[in-house]
Design a protein around this nucleic acid. Structure first.
Lengths: 142, 142
DNA sequence: CTGCTTGCAAAGCGTTTGCATTGAT
DNA sequence: ATCAATGCAAACGCTTTGCAAGCAG
C-alpha cells in the first residue's frame, strides 16, 4: 500500500538524503491541509508540533516535496502557497462576493476543454485554478 | 471619444493628483505593449524615452493605473507583470510553470459551463479567474 | 505659493544561503 | 565516523517608503 510517507522516504533514499524528525513533522502537517496553504500558515502549524523548526528547514523541505511530486508550488500575490498533489480529487471554487460563502464543484466538461486549450498551445497541463465570483441565492434576496 | 489618457486624467483630477510628464511617459509606454509586461521591461522602455525616471515612480504610477482600472497586476514566479484592462476582450491564462511564459486564451464553451455551474448552485456569476498551469513545448524538450 | 511628485537611498519583506553544530546512518 | 540536516543570522532580490528638492496647479 503506497502512501505519501513511503514515497517521500524512497525519494530521500534514492538521493542519499535523510529521513529526519523535522521532515516527518512537516510532511504530517502538510498532508493534514486541504487546498492551497501559505508557507507562513504551514510554519505556524509546524511550530505547534515542534517550535524549534526553523523557516529555512521548512522552505528546504517543501522544495523536496515539490521535487518528489507530492506537492505543487504556486506564487500568488507575492505569497508562496503549496498544494497536495498525490491522491486528491481536484475541485474548483464558486465564491460569493458578498458573504464569502464558498462552494466546491467539479465539471468534467470544463476540464476537458481546458485540456483542449492546452494541447492547442503545445502545453502539458499540470494543474489549474478556477474561481467563479458571484452572488449567492441568499445574498441576492437582500 | 473616451480614451485611456482622458480616463487617467479624470481619475487623477478626482483625487487631486497631478498629471506629470513622468506619468504621461509611463502611460504611453504601457499602452504600446501587448499582453503581460514585466516591470523591469517597462522600466527599460520608459528609460529610453526619459532616462531620469526612477523605479519608484514607475511602481507608484503603475499602482495608480491599477486603481483606475486601466491596468491589472499579476504576480508569477516572484515577478510582477501588468496587463491592459481597458477596451480589451476578457481572456484567461495558460502559464508555463518553468519559464513563466503566459498565453492568453478564450473558450466560449468553458464560459458557458461556468454559467451553468453557477445557476445550478443559485449563484449570479459576476466574474471569474482561470489559470491553467503547465509546461510549454520548449520547456518540455529540455 | 501650496502641497503633490520626484529621484535617491534606505528600509522592508519574503526567500535563500553560508556556516558551525547536530544528528542519522 | 562520516557527511547530510539543522537553526541561526546574514545575504539576496524585488518592492515600498522617508525625505529633501522640484514642479504642477
Amino acid at each position: 500500500m503506497v502512501n505519501e510517507f513511503d514515497i517521500f522516504k524512497d525519494f530521500l533514499k534514492e538521493r542519499n538524503l535523510r529521513w529526519t524528525p523535522q521532515r516527518k513533522v512537516i510532511l504530517e502537517v502538510f498532508l493534514n491541509q486541504e487546498g492551497h496553504i501559505h508557507i507562513e500558515d504551514l510554519l505556524h502549524r509546524v511550530k505547534i508540533q515542534d517550535p524549534t523548526v526553523g523557516i529555512a528547514t521548512l522552505y528546504r523541505t517543501m522544495k523536496l516535496l515539490v521535487d518528489s511530486s507530492l506537492a505543487d508550488m504556486h506564487t500568488f500575490n507575492e505569497k508562496t502557497t503549496y498544494e497536495r498533489l498525490f491522491q486528491v480529487r481536484h475541485h474548483d471554487h464558486l465564491i460569493c462576493k458578498i458573504c464569502g460563502k464558498m462552494v466546491e464543484f467539479e465539471h468534467p466538461l470544463i476540464e476537458k476543454y481546458q485540456l483542449e486549450v492546452c494541447e492547442r498551445h503545445g502545453f502539458t497541463l499540470k494543474s489549474h485554478r478556477m474561481e467563479l465570483f458571484g452572488i449567492c441565492k441568499e445574498c441576492n434576496k437582500v
